[in-house]
Amino acid sequence: MFKRNDNETSREDPVVQPPSPAPSSAAARAPSTGGAAVIGPSIRISGDLEGDEDLVVQGQIEGTVTLRKNLLTVGKDGRVNATVHARAVQVDGHVEGDLHGEEQVVVRKSGNVRGNIVSPRVTLEDGCRFKGSIDMETVTASEGRGKVADIKGSGPDAMKGSLGKSAG
C-alpha cells in the first residue's frame, strides 16, 4: 500500500491502519474516514509515502506524500511536515510544506498551513491559518483562463466531488 524508504529514521514502525469493525480506542475517537486508510494519532512516520487509496492522517508524517489519484485528509490532530502531491488535499490540522493538488486543495477553518499551494481550485476557509503562496493556474483550454478559488465550495460538501471519484 505504501512504500517506505530505506533511509527512514522513525524509531517506530509505520503502521497504516485500515478501518476495522472493532476499532481501537484511538480510532474510535477519530472522525469517520469513509473507507480511507488511517494513520492513527500515536503513529509517527518519517520517509516517503506513496499509495493508491485515500489517506487520513491523524498522526505525524515527515518527508513526502504522493497520492496521485487520491485524497489526502490531514485530521485536526494530524501534523504533516512534507511535500504533498495528491489528487485532492483537505487540511483540518497542521501542515508545513508545499501542497500540490491535481484537482483541489481545501484548508478548513481549523487548518494551519505554512507552505505553498499549487492547484486549480483552492479554498481557504475564513479563520484558517495560512502563510505561503497560492498559484491559481489555468486549468484547461476549454475552461478558459484562471480557474477561480472556490468560494461556493468552502462548505462541508466541497470535497464530495473529489471523494466520489476516490479509488480507495
Binding site: 484548508v107 483552492v122 479554498t123 481557504l124 476557509e125 475564513d126 484558517c128 491559518r129 495560512f130 502563510k131 505561503g132 503562496s133 497560492i134 498559484d135 491559481m136 493556474e137 489555468t138 483562463r145 484562471g146 480557474k147 477561480v148 478559488a149 472556490d150 468560494i151 468552502s154
Partner: peptide, 25 residues
Amino acid sequence: GPPMTATLGFFGQAPCRLCLEDLAA
C-alpha cells in the same frame, strides 16, 4: 493580512500568484 475566502475569489478571476503572510499574528 490573514487568508480570506472572498479576497482569494477576487484575485482568482485572473491568472494570479497570491502570497499570504498573515503578519498581524
